[in-house]
């Protein structure tokens, strides 16, 4: 039964545009979907390796800027009079480049910042995001700084010689976001269920033990950071081409907070967690808007966040799983135990 759950969810999600015609709710689904993708990528770091990146919005924003700039073209002068001129490319190459550039930064940041752990790691990642924001704000020649990149083209699908199709409509964007979400889900689930993924969980549970049995800690962490940053970059690219304008506000700390809330309330270290948490916190503003004043909406948001952490500190998905396990007496062993056994088996 549990094996089919993702498929059922996918089919259910795919049916939404068929019966839901309210563009505002559909818009909420699309933006929520984009943030769910970003939250899933954060979950790979936070949930599986135990490293809390509070600068995750940096990868999201880098993906957004890279994708937008590749499809808009730019003309900048670097140091020593070297001039880089880039003609606009098709949008899908922009999206791919967004992923690549974000992943590259993921590699650099991973290499450098995994030298520290815990609270220090948190602060390095915040600092990184803040520096990237300030670069986007001040490198006016490339990013237009606060003047914003506007007229970002919509995503185009098609083949050379066959013809192109602009994804203008909400329905097509919905399916595009859903497709990227499903793809990210597959990538992440493959990764965490592979040898690399078990190693990551192992070092999250007990790093010194993992090191002592010969796991290449930094190597796996960097791998996680690269994949995570790449997926966040994809989400950023989708965001840029959907909103059609980006400015340094794309690096708002609030966006990182949104991702963290989605992951932790949904259940970190579970594949479904960010999706469940994302749907809840993506839609709270949509519903609270109709009956609360502006400040009170935020206050409700904050209180709800505290409440969830108090009542379900593990997150919603693990709580539901536990409840089902208790009811069915499902003999399935928890993930943690199996990985610990795995470590002990390792040569």
């Amino acid at each position: 039964m549990k094996r089919y759950l993702p498929w059922i969810a996918l089919v259910a999600a795919a049916s939404i545009p068929l019966w839901l015609h309210d563009p505002y709710i559909l818009n909420a689904f699309i933006t929520t979907g984009i943030f769910i993708i970003a939250a899933m990528s954060l979950n790979l770091l936070l949930g599986y390796t135990g490293q809390l990146s509070l600068g995750h919005v940096a990868f999201f924003g880098i993906g957004a800027y890279a994708s937008a700039l590749v499809s808009l073209g730019f003309d900048v002068e670097l140091l020593f009079g070297i001039r880089v001129v880039h003609e606009p490319w098709p949008v899908w190459t922009g999206l791919v480049m967004g992923v690549v550039v974000a992943a590259f930064f993921g590699y650099v940041v991973g290499k450098l910042s995994f030298r520290v752990r815990g609270a220090y790691f948190v602060i390095v990642t915040i600092s990184f995001a803040e520096v990237v924001r300030l670069v986007a704000l001040n490198w006016v020649e490339l990013t237009q700084g606060p003047l914003a990149l506007t007229s970002i083209p919509p995503v185009t699908l098609g083949l050379p010689g066959v013809g192109y199709y602009d994804l203008y409509s909400k329905q097509s964007y919905f399916y595009l976001v859903l497709a990227v979400l499903a793809l990210s889900y597959v990538v992440i689930s493959r990764l965490v269920n592979s040898r690399a993924g078990r190693a990551m969980v192992a070092l999250k549970e007990n790093e010194s033990l993992a090191v002592s049995v010969g796991i290449d800690v930094t190597g796996y962490l960097v791998l996680a950071a690269v994949v995570s940053a790449g997926i966040a970059g994809a989400a950023g690219g989708l965001y840029a081409h959907y909103l059609k304008i980006i400015d340094p506000d794309v690096f708002l700390f609030l966006y990182t907070v949104t991702m963290v809330i989605m992951v932790i309330t949904g259940g970190k270290g579970t594949l479904a967690g960010p999706i469940v948490g994302g749907l809840i916190f993506g839609f709270i503003p949509v519903f609270s808007r109709s009956f609360l004043g502006p400040e009170l909406q935020w206050i409700l948001y904050g209180l709800f966040m505290i409440l969830i952490v108090f009542v379900l500190p593990e997150g919603i998905v693990p709580a539901i799983e536990k409840w089902f396990a208790a009811r069915d007496k499902d003999p399935e062993t928890p993930l943690v135990k199996s990985t610990q056994a795995h470590i002990q088996d390792a040569p």
Partner: peptide, 15 residues
Amino acid sequence: DIDTTMLIMIGAMIV
């Protein structure tokens, strides 16, 4: 753990 209390404090900050 550290991120749970951090989330509570973020909630407190928003409120």
